[in-house]
Amino acid sequence: MAMRAIPFDRLVVITSQDNTFRDEYQDILQINRISRTPVETLMVDKFDLMGSFAAIVNSIQHHKEMRDKVAINISGGTVLLADAALLAAFQTGVDAYHVDDRVIKLPVLRNASIEERLSSDQRRTLLRLEGNTDLAALQKEAGPEAARTLKDLRTLKKMGLVQVGLGDGVTWVSLTRMGEYYRKALQRPSR
């Protein structure tokens, strides 16, 4: 039903190795062979949510780079695969659909990826944090921008990306697990 409802001229099937032997997968290949639509298969580990998520994000970015308009259907596969696809759609800001007896376009916005939701100062502050960072040293390093850096840190803390701790009379700032994740995402070359 999704193939009828969402127009496309190239299809990427996201699946795991064992599913390639199933009739459903072979049917998709067959249908698209008849319509001469190029089909590409993105193999993922169906038990690895974050790995699948990263693979889908990469594939979306690759196709965006090729100036393709990308849409993703999250209604197939395992729970884990559907969740990975949903996360990837919001992360990259591409149209996402859930298709059952009707077609539901999910409320994904195009300007709401992490890169777009942080200001350039907030991004810079996030990238400067590695391990435990002494807050006083960080402010000193920021010089005349110290007040702004502090404000950015407060915002990043509110977003759950930064945590603050006390030890040996020093105030430390460090990234949360989520902060580490987004720092890595920001370090990836933008496509």
Binding site: L49, L87, M159, L161
Partner: peptide, 15 residues
């Protein structure tokens, strides 16, 4: 337990 990436801010703040 695997923590999934999300920001502690409402998505609608992009509007």
């Amino acid at each position: 337990e695997i923590m999934l990436p999300s920001l502690h801010m409402r998505y609608s703040s992009a509007l």
